[in-house]
Simulated assay, not measured.
Amino acid sequence: MTNSFPQLAIEELGYYVYFLRDPRDKKIFYVGKGSGNRIFDHIGCALNDTPSEKLDLIREIQNAGKSVEHFVLRHGLKTESHAFEIEAAAIDLIGFQNLANLQRGHGSTDFGIKSTAEIIAMYSAQQLETNLDVMLFNINKRFNREMTSDEIYQATRYKWLVGQRRNKAKYAIAVYRGITREVYVIQDWVQDGDNLWSFNGYLADEDVRHELQHKSVSNLFLRGAQNPVRYVKC
């Protein structure tokens, strides 16, 4: 098994993006970028007992009498930033949830995979204007692209530090990166600890969602603001 590149190959490779594949089911389990012999370093790290999903899988492959398959996806890249971009695109395409990577690709939050509706919302979203009584919940820290619709609902409804004004709100809106993502009817509130409240609700009607979804509220959530909740018309 090859465990290093010849010096001449290293000099020609430049920065590169690579992936590791499980020989047993041909599934890619790790994407990375680097230079020199970086692609082979993971095998050496697996020799110690450091626990990690990636290293545990490598040890499992080796204990089965197999060898991890190494592939270079792109090479000859002139800058590390170029390698970062390709690495991030590969992670997005394969799906972060399908990999043993500890972090998403560089810049994936702003420039990573998005639906066409999200692209339109990002670059041409109209400012939210409504006469409805709504609460906005910034779920940036709870959000990931692989969330199911129920997981988005749970992230939106669950445990907020809110006061009596909550009782005036009819709709709850999930907000991610300054754009409204989903809209729920608030049925009631339940206390979830000291001064923490969660609402029970359900997905709003299509007409309401059309009015409130994919609108910009960046003017209400200024960069660095600590409070993740905003009231509109309440």
Rank of each mutant, 00 (worst) to 15 (best):
Y30R: 04
L136K: 10
N48D: 15
S108D: 08
L128T: 05
N101M: 10
K54Q: 15
T148S: 15
E182I: 08
R166I: 09
D41V: 08
N48R: 04
R142L: 14
I119V: 15
S67G: 02
A169G: 05
R165N: 14
M135K: 02
N131Q: 13
Y202K: 07
S115E: 08
T116G: 01
E211T: 12
K26Q: 15
Y171V: 07
G65S: 09
R165A: 11
G178Q: 10
E12S: 11
S149R: 11
Y202P: 00
E151N: 02
N227W: 00
T148H: 04
I28E: 02
L93K: 03
R59N: 06
V185N: 11
E182R: 15
A172N: 13
F19C: 09
D110H: 09
M135A: 10
I173D: 02
I152W: 06
N167T: 14
Q126R: 11
N144I: 01
I61A: 07
D207A: 14
L57K: 14
G65E: 07
V208Q: 03
G65D: 04
I173A: 05
L55A: 03
T79N: 08
Q97R: 05
R145P: 00
V134E: 02
N167W: 06
K54E: 14
F137K: 15
G14H: 04
P6F: 01
Y176R: 15
S198V: 07
Q154M: 15
Y158T: 08
I43L: 15
H106G: 09
Q97F: 00
R230L: 00
E53I: 08
N98F: 06
Y15C: 05
R142Y: 12
V162Y: 02
I119C: 02
Q164C: 08
R38L: 05
E211P: 01
Y171F: 14
D133W: 00
I58Q: 08
D56M: 02
D133I: 00
A64I: 06
K33A: 13
G178F: 05
S218V: 10
L132G: 01
A225F: 00
V185I: 12
W160K: 06
V190C: 03
A83W: 00
D41C: 04
K141M: 12
I186Y: 00
L220G: 06
G163I: 03
F137S: 15
T109G: 10
G14F: 01
V208C: 02
N3P: 03
K168E: 13
P23F: 03
V232Q: 12
I113D: 02
R165Q: 13
Q187S: 13
N48G: 09
G32M: 09
A204R: 02
F96V: 06
A172W: 05
D150H: 10
D22F: 02
L77D: 01
K114L: 12
F71M: 09
D56K: 01
H75I: 10
Y202D: 01
Y202E: 06
Y18H: 07
G95A: 03
E53A: 12
P23M: 05
S52L: 07
F137D: 10
S35M: 10
E12H: 09
P51Y: 01
L55C: 04
N98G: 02
F221Q: 07
S108M: 00
A121W: 03
E182C: 08
E53V: 13
I58S: 10
P228D: 09
E85D: 13
R157Y: 03
M1Y: 04
Y202I: 00
A9E: 15
Y184T: 09
R230V: 01
S35G: 08
D133G: 07
